[in-house]
Computed example of a mutant assay.
Amino acid sequence: MLLYKQKKNQPAKGGNRLLISITVLGSAGPIRFVVSEEEIVAAVIDTALKSYAREGRLPVLGSDLNNFLLYCSNAPSGALSPWDTIGSHGSRNFMLCKKPETEKVAADAARLSPTTIGRRGSGSWKSWLNKSLNMKVSTH
C-alpha cells in the first residue's frame, strides 16, 4: 500500500497563513504573529490586544476589541470592517488605533452647556463667571 504525502508547497486545510505586523499607535514597535487568510478582522484585533497585554507593553490599552480600529498601513482607505477577512486586503502591515471618544466629548459638552452651568453651584451665571476668573488669576 502506498501512502500519499502532501507536498510542501500546497496549502494546508485551513488555507494560507500570513505573518502580519500590527503597529499600535503610541507603542514602541509592531506586534507580529501568524494568522489564517480567512481570519476576520475582529479576531485579529482580539489576538493583537492579547499579545500586546501578554508582552506587558505600554501604554495599557485594555481588552475590549470594540474600542479599536484596524487600518491598512499602505492603503489610504478608512478603517477595516470587523467582518472582513484579513487576507482580502492584500496587506500584511496594519495599524491599530483606539476609536475616538465622540460620545464622551458630546456628553461633557451637554453637561457644561450654558443652561446647566447657571443651575449648578450658587445659582447665577455671574457668580460662576467670577469664580472662573478668580481661578485663573495667578499670584506669585
Rank of each mutant, 00 (worst) to 15 (best):
L96I: 05
C97P: 02
V24P: 03
I31F: 06
P82Q: 03
A12V: 06
L129G: 01
G14H: 08
S81D: 13
S27P: 00
L2C: 13
N130P: 03
P76H: 04
L112P: 06
E38L: 12
H140C: 10
S81V: 06
R119Q: 10
G14I: 13
K126G: 00
K7V: 07
Q10T: 08
A107C: 08
P114R: 01
G26T: 01
L96C: 01
N67Q: 13
Y52S: 08
T102C: 04
S21L: 05
E103S: 15
L25A: 14
A43K: 14
R92L: 13
A110D: 08
W125Y: 08
N9M: 09
R92A: 12
S21F: 12
V60G: 11
S81A: 12
P82F: 06
L112T: 11
S88N: 05
A53W: 10
D84F: 01
K8A: 14
A109D: 07
A107W: 09
K7A: 14
M1N: 12
V44G: 05
V24S: 05
S127D: 05
P76T: 11
T102W: 09
G78T: 01
L80A: 00
L3S: 12
C97R: 15
S63A: 13
M135V: 03
S73T: 12
S51W: 10
D46N: 12
S21G: 09
H140T: 13
Q10W: 13
W83E: 14
L3M: 11
R57P: 03
G26Y: 00
P100Y: 11
P76Q: 09
K8I: 14
S138N: 11
K5A: 09
L133C: 05
N66E: 06
I40T: 13
S36R: 15
L18Y: 10
Y71K: 02
A53K: 15
S81T: 07
R92T: 11
I40M: 12
